[in-house]
């Protein structure tokens, strides 16, 4: 999922100078899942803004703010609702993709209330770790299903660096060197020897943004 983090309340308020009527849009996918921009946080933000005298005219959190039909569908359009209610500004707690999609489709300013962090995995309902950097050139079939491109700060594909001391990453002492995990896993799978092969150079064309995926229309 896309993991986001709520910005400090003061920072959000600082971008709202000169506005009174505010519409807040969260997102139940990434932002809601990581409890940093779903309906609950949107409602909390609304209360705090009201406390400062803002007029919050609507709070919505669709299941996917980055999906155009969910924010601007034929039967139900949150964007039209925001317009009808006379919103002067929209505060989005959706990820960068959702927030931009809103901005593309409304005439009023859109302020983001979150920072988009990473594509991560969740555990215990509260721990989120970056597992993928969407490099476009996935190699995890060769590394025991563990990605060194995303989970080693240097994205090393041929093995650990010389800074991997006692299993720790040199860059972030809080995390293990991912190559220890890869080694362990590959041993378990009986595939350790396959790591002997020199890894091909990464093709960074595949991560040149902005990227797109267009599905063929079904005939």
């Amino acid at each position: 999922m896309v993991v986001v983090k709520l910005k400090a309340f003061e920072e959000i308020v600082s971008k709202l100078k000169g506005f009174r009527k505010i519409f807040i849009l969260g997102c139940e996918l990434g932002s809601g899942r990581c409890k940093n921009g779903g309906l609950k946080e949107a409602l909390e933000l609304s209360e705090r803004l009201k406390g400062l005298g803002f007029n919050v005219v609507g709070v919505k959190s669709p299941g996917g703010t980055c999906i155009l039909e969910r924010i601007d569908g034929r039967e139900r359009s949150l964007l039209k609702e925001a317009k009808t209610k006379g919103s002067e500004v929209i505060v989005s707690l959706a990820c960068g993709a959702g927030t931009q999609l809103i901005a593309e489709n409304v005439d009023v300013p859109v302020i983001t209330g979150v920072t988009t962090l990473f594509i991560g995995a969740e555990r215990e309902g509260r721990i989120f770790n970056e597992y993928c950097i969407a490099c476009g050139d996935c190699i995890i079939s060769d590394t025991g299903g563990i990605c060194p491109v995303a989970r080693c700060p240097k994205s090393l594909v041929n093995g650990p660096c010389g800074g991997a001391i006692e299993g720790q990453c040199e860059v972030d002492k809080e995390i293990p060197c991912i190559w220890y995990k890869i080694a362990e896993r590959m041993k378990k799978l009986g595939a350790f020897k396959s790591l002997c092969e020199s890894a091909p150079f990464k093709d960074y064309r595949k991560s040149v943004y902005p990227r797109r995926l267009i599905l063929e229309e079904k005939s």
């Binding site: 010389g162 060197c177 080694a183």
Partner: peptide, 10 residues
């Protein structure tokens, strides 16, 4: 540095 086997492999 470790894991030693991987350091040697590298």
């Amino acid at each position: 540095a470790g894991p030693f086997e991987l350091q040697v492999m590298k």
